[in-house]
């Protein structure tokens, strides 16, 4: 079966003062129709840059230096970033919702102007139809009395409401894929829950796929079907959500799971991942997680960065030489 979106060996580098920064270094993932996937990682792991690269929204000094992004059977990386084709995809077929709703909405335009713009651009609607549709969208995402509020400016809305507007904008042109980059991190807990619920409900209704980019393992556990764990510009583990949470096999994934306090456990001491994420310039040849890894062996030190390899479990792949399941048996005896 053909994938809706397939990213192959994507590489995005930044030319900085301190040297070449490999923000995304050979990332491959796919999304099927009407699927919800999660991309998990900490700040600086390249999860956001990966998504921005898919949208070709990388600005200088960053550059997409390799890879393919196959969307509906065509490599969209071949399109010019500001060309006609890319513009039709961006916001039309693939839409993105950013973390900070205030900076991604234009403060000097009313909601109607902003929403209608993409409707008229992508769906070739006329002004009246676009306005009607915009009101409809705002109603869908739960803005009270949208007819009255459509001519308001973004600052007249609260943070949660603005993010709802962003969701409405994202969905305005029936995109095939909605990318949500830490969509709720800046918001309060109960608002977060409202919005994630809304977002998943909406993509189901619009028959879109959803990519949730987050650092919150709980969020992907609740909503995603498959997940990708990223560390230092690479995917270190991928598989179905159930499989990864039940049998995590990469030391980093295990570390993450052991280091977050959970609502449903009491009194268990957290096991932090020692050390710091690596500096992405001047990366070593060996495994990037090695300095922080409790399972490291001699082989890890002397061998190059391991490739993703298949392990038992549906679609489960891990970038590690060590078979943690076995190591665990040894230590636990």
């Amino acid at each position: 079966m053909e994938r809706l979106l397939e990213v192959k060996d994507l590489k995005t580098y930044f030319n900085t003062d301190d040297g070449l920064l490999k923000a995304v270094d050979g990332v491959s993932f796919y999304v099927d129709e009407q699927e919800i996937i999660g991309v998990v990682g900490e700040s600086g792991c390249g999860k956001t840059v990966t998504q921005l690269s898919v949208m070709q929204l990388i600005a200088r000094p960053g550059k997409i230096v390799g890879g393919e992004v196959i969307f509906e059977g065509r490599d969209i990386l071949k399109y010019k970033p500001h060309g006609e084709e890319m513009r039709a995809i961006r916001g039309g077929k693939i839409a993105m919702i950013f973390q900070e709703p205030m900076t991604s909405l234009n403060p000097v335009l009313t909601l109607n102007q902003q929403l209608s713009e993409s409707l008229m651009l992508h769906l070739k609607m006329n002004k009246e139809d676009a306005r009607k549709r915009a009101i409809e969208l705002l109603r869908l995402v739960g803005i009270p009395s949208p007819e009255a509020r459509i001519d308001d400016y973004p600052h007249q809305f609260s943070g949660g409401m603005r993010q709802r507007v962003m969701i409405a904008m994202g969905l305005s042109c029936n995109p095939k894929i909605l990318i949500a980059d830490e969509p709720t991190t800046a918001l309060d807990v109960t608002t977060q829950a409202q919005l994630l619920e809304l977002m998943t409900e909406m993509v189901e209704r619009f028959r879109s796929s959803l990519i949730i980019v987050t650092h919150n393992l709980g969020v992907v556990a609740r909503y995603a079907k498959r997940i990708y764990i990223m560390y230092a510009g690479k995917i270190v583990e991928e598989g179905t959500c159930k499989e990864i949470f039940k049998h995590p096999r990469h030391p980093y994934t295990i570390g993450l799971l052991n280091s977050v306090p959970r609502l449903d456990t009491v009194g268990k001491r957290l096991v932090p991942i020692e050390g710091l994420p690596p500096n992405l310039t001047n990366m070593p040849d060996y495994c990037a997680f090695l300095p922080r890894c409790p399972y490291k062996t001699e082989k890890c030190r002397t061998s190059p960065m391991p490739d993703l390899r298949d392990v038992p479990g549906e679609g489960h792949r891990v970038r590690c030489y060590v078979d943690i399941a076995e190591v665990d048996n040894v230590t636990v005896k």
Partner: peptide, 24 residues
């Protein structure tokens, strides 16, 4: 508030009841 905080375990999450507060 409790129900808004997801637990990093998909199997538990499937069974959890979700109470979503209206409004802000």
């Amino acid at each position: 508030l409790l129900s808004a905080v997801p637990v990093p375990d998909p199997e538990i999450e499937e069974k959890r009841e979700r109470i979503i507060l209206e409004g802000e």
